[in-house]
Amino acid sequence: MTPTMLRQLWFLIETTQANMLLKLDDASLVQWLLKQIKQERSLSGHEIDILSDYILSKTSLIRDLAHDRA
């Protein structure tokens, strides 16, 4: 995963309404974030897999950050 992709993902997380992030279950959260990123850039199948795994491993952190903003 490139630094640019990481920055894009975390910028998306920080700028998305907290309630949106908190209302989704883990699988839906991963899919929603991937969909948003795919709208901005083209991703290969390999990049999608890596990004999915990364997001899934960070769901607790994503929810904690969103909860702090809510």
Rank of each mutant, 00 (worst) to 15 (best):
M1P: 04
T2M: 01
T2R: 07
T2W: 00
P3H: 06
P3Q: 06
P3C: 04
T4K: 08
T4Y: 09
T4D: 09
M5R: 08
M5T: 11
L6R: 08
L6N: 13
R7V: 09
R7T: 10
Q8R: 08
L9G: 08
L9V: 06
L9P: 02
W10I: 05
W10P: 02
W10K: 01
F11W: 03
F11G: 06
F11Q: 13
F11Y: 07
L12P: 00
L12G: 03
I13K: 01
I13Y: 01
E14N: 09
T15K: 06
T15D: 02
T16N: 01
T16L: 05
Q17F: 00
A18R: 00
N19W: 02
M20V: 13
M20S: 11
M20R: 10
L21K: 06
L21C: 06
L21Q: 07
L22R: 05
K23E: 15
K23A: 10
K23I: 09
K23P: 00
L24I: 02
L24H: 12
L24W: 10
L24K: 12
D25A: 09
D25T: 08
D25G: 08
S28G: 10
S28K: 12
L29P: 04
V30E: 04
V30C: 09
L33D: 04
L33F: 01
L34W: 03
L34C: 05
K35G: 14
K35Y: 11
Q36L: 07
Q36D: 06
Q36W: 00
Q36A: 13
I37Q: 05
I37M: 13
I37S: 04
I37L: 15
I37V: 13
K38A: 14
K38S: 15
Q39W: 03
E40K: 14
R41K: 14
S42L: 10
S42H: 08
S42W: 07
L43K: 01
L43M: 14
G45I: 04
H46T: 10
H46P: 00
H46M: 06
H46I: 12
E47W: 05
I48D: 11
I48N: 08
I48V: 15
I48P: 00
I48E: 15
D49P: 00
D49M: 07
I50S: 10
I50G: 11
I50K: 08
L51Y: 06
L51K: 01
L51I: 06
S52I: 02
S52Y: 01
S52D: 12
D53L: 07
Y54D: 06
Y54N: 07
Y54K: 05
I55P: 03
I55E: 09
L56V: 08
L56T: 11
L56F: 10
L56Y: 11
L56S: 15
S57Y: 03
S57G: 12
S57D: 14
S57H: 10
K58N: 15
K58G: 03
T59K: 04
T59M: 04
S60M: 10
I62M: 01
R63Y: 12
R63M: 06
D64I: 12
D64P: 02
L65D: 07
L65E: 12
A66R: 03
A66I: 09
A66Y: 05
H67R: 15
H67S: 15
D68Q: 15
D68F: 07
D68M: 11
R69G: 07
A70G: 15
A70I: 11
A70K: 13
A70Q: 13
A70N: 14
